[in-house]
């Protein structure tokens, strides 16, 4: 199965976004997802990035990008200014997990979050074999990983429950990007969620 820009979660995220929506992509990298959403969905998009090289790459991509740190409040962004706030494969790199999730739903109507599942069976097997997992969705060695939070689908859903966040939709993918329907916490390598506040 081929995926947009080699990122299976991008296809799912794209499908959730309506033409003309206002989209904020936190940790937007070089702006690839926003570029795709602008080109295919005609969204009005902005990204947030901390890294100088990515700021430059996003501007080269013609993307609105704001240099900022996701560990701090998103003070430049007003309440409910966006239809969708995307955090793609970035939540595991942020220390202030609850802070960023709250900020997403302060500035946006809906949060879209994707992250690698540490309970994926290959990851578990790797740990049982005595080594930290390295996989398609966790492509780093333990000593050079940007990841600072290690959690599973069940962990994330328990946090959403605790924070009163409503899971509107969830898709789980294996390492090849195929949808996983059963035993998702064991068979899923990457999860994508749509969240809103409880109301």
């Amino acid at each position: 199965m081929t995926h947009t820009l080699g990122r299976p979660d991008f296809d799912l995220i794209t499908a959730w976004i309506e033409p003309g929506d206002r989209v904020l992509d936190l940790g937007c990298g070089d702006g690839t997802l926003l570029r795709h959403l602008i080109d295919t969905r005609g969204v009005h998009g902005w990204g947030v990035e901390i890294d100088d090289a990515n700021i430059l790459a996003a501007i080269r991509n013609g993307i609105n990008v704001i240099q900022g740190n996701l560990e701090r409040p998103l003070d430049e962004f007003a309440d409910q200014g966006f239809d969708h706030v995307v955090l793609s494969r970035t939540l595991q790199t942020v220390r202030h997990t609850e802070g960023i999730l709250r900020e997403m739903l302060r500035v946006g109507r809906e949060a879209v979050v994707s992250f690698p599942n540490f309970a994926y069976w290959k990851n578990l097997r790797s740990v049982l074999d005595g080594r930290m997992p390295v996989s398609e969705d966790l492509p780093y060695q333990w000593y050079d990983s940007p990841n600072v939070r290690f959690f599973t689908l069940l962990d994330f859903e328990a946090l959403c429950d605790k924070m009163g966040l409503v899971i509107r939709e969830r898709h789980v993918l294996d390492e090849e990007g195929n949808l996983v329907e059963d035993e998702v916490n064991f068979l899923g390598s990457l999860a994508v969620y749509r969240l809103t506040l409880n109301r």
Partner: peptide, 17 residues
């Protein structure tokens, strides 16, 4: 930046070290 974002304007911001 905040005033431009609140108006939905096209804006990029770089803080240079």
């Amino acid at each position: 930046v905040a005033a431009l974002l609140a108006n939905g304007r096209n804006v990029s911001y770089a803080d240079i070290s």
